[in-house]
């Protein structure tokens, strides 16, 4: 059983505060806030989709999104 009291983030007023103090969210947030990193991540997603996509992707929307 999870003890909710032990998981309270000190000083957090709502879920945004909790996320802001979460270390993973903070690292991801700071990285993705950089437009170059964000663009390269999108590029990697597109490449992986193209290379590993299914052969049935004769539809543009299916492949790209």
């Amino acid at each position: 059983m999870i003890d909710a009291e032990k998981h309270v983030v000190p000083g957090a007023r709502d879920v945004r505060d909790v996320l802001a103090k979460d270390p993973i969210v903070r690292v991801l947030g700071s990285r993705l806030a950089n437009p170059v990193v964000l663009g390269l991540v999108a590029f990697a997603i597109v490449l992986v989709t193209i290379v590993f996509g299914p052969s049935s992707d004769t539809r543009f929307i299916y492949t790209a999104f």
């Binding site: 437009p35 170059v36 964000l38 663009g39 999108a42 590029f43 490449l47």
Partner: peptide, 19 residues
């Protein structure tokens, strides 16, 4: 918006170089 625009430019540039 500026960051998203820059990210889109980076994406298009990377795809262009790759192509």
């Amino acid at each position: 918006l500026r960051n998203l625009g820059l990210a889109a430019l980076v994406l298009v540039a990377a795809l262009g170089v790759t192509d």
